Simulated assay, not measured.
Amino acid sequence: MTLLEARDLRVEFASRGRRARAVDGVNLAIGAGEIVALVGESGCGKTTLARTLLGLERPVSGSVVYGGAPLDYSSRALKAYRREVQLVLQDPTGSLNPRHNVYEAVAEGPRIHGLTDERERVLSALSRAGLRPPERFLLTYPHELSGGQRQRVVIAGALALDPRLLVADEPVASLDASVRGEILALLMRLRDELGLSALVVTHDLGLAWNIADRVAVMYLGRIVETGPVEQVLTSPSHPYTQALLSVLPESPAPVVLAGEPPDPTRIPGGCRFHPRCQVLASGDAARAGVDHACRSEPLAVLSASGGSQVACHYAGVRESLP
């Protein structure tokens, strides 16, 4: 069952007299009890898409659909929605008020939503987040905790509202390597024990491999490849996905992309990746007879179906070969 879905979502911002198409036609579905990784380099639109799914940004077109109904942007409806769809930010230190102890930090959500049994909710959330015994942490302040413990407090603050879905924006990027695995294991355990869904926003394909059921690769405002995580990461079809994977330690050789980082105010014609594409630069696209299409023919927006899909002229030709 689909819990949260983006349907042809488009988000724009004014930038130096031009319009930046931060999200430029995205279809993405997250099922109940499913973890989806949204990956891509900085500036590709991942965080804007996540904020739009949370109702923090309003799309210029398309819609966010939750539980089968389009998102209602009235204050009352958004408050109810955000109890069920909670955000976990990258920097736990910046997320926590240094003047609030752990109890106050975790109790903030239940107080905003007027929930009863506040203390029981706080204790239960801390315990589920792996801070045990929870009573030991109640009067502790953020500066007295390790980075991993602070991130667990942030997660506990979300769990105190009994959400159905977490949107985690780079949830382990600011943590030591020794702690990252613990937080990822916690997210997977919450999925298994509570049926919690999650959208994990990251630039790290290694993280996606370890935690996600499905992966969506985003470039310049649009998803260019999507599918089951094992299939996409073991047999990537899009040259951009191949380049992202090439920087992992076990990769034989990194792919160095040509050209400038993408500018959402100047989206190129044809395939939006073609100015930096290693397949086009190497001549492989010309030998396959698709170099003109790469430069001039736009690709269709990928659907939100659960199967493997890729937006690439060269990949389409290669798949059709015997």
Rank of each mutant, 00 (worst) to 15 (best):
V172N: 00
S174Q: 14
S174A: 12
L175P: 08
D176C: 09
A177G: 12
G181R: 13
E182C: 04
E182S: 10
L184Q: 09
A185Q: 04
L187K: 14
L187I: 15
M188W: 10
M188L: 15
R189V: 02
L190V: 01
D192T: 13
G195Q: 01
L199P: 05
H203C: 11
H203V: 09
D204A: 10
L205G: 13
G206M: 04
G206L: 06
A208K: 12
I211K: 14
I211Y: 13
I211D: 14
V215W: 13
V215E: 13
A216N: 11
V217Y: 00
G221Y: 08
R222C: 02
I223L: 01
V224F: 00
V224R: 01
G227L: 03
G227I: 04
P228C: 04
Q231D: 05
Q231E: 15
Q231T: 05
L233A: 02
T234H: 13
T234P: 03
P236N: 03
S237P: 04
S237V: 04
Y240R: 06
Q242G: 02
Q242Y: 03
L244H: 07
L245R: 12
V247C: 14
A253G: 02
P261M: 08
P262H: 03
T265S: 07
I267L: 05
P268M: 11
P268Y: 13
G270P: 02
C271Q: 09
C271K: 00
C271T: 05
C271W: 01
F273E: 03
V279S: 04
G283W: 09
A285I: 11
A286K: 15
R287D: 14
G289W: 10
V290K: 12
V290S: 11
V290Y: 10
H292G: 14
H292F: 12
C294F: 07
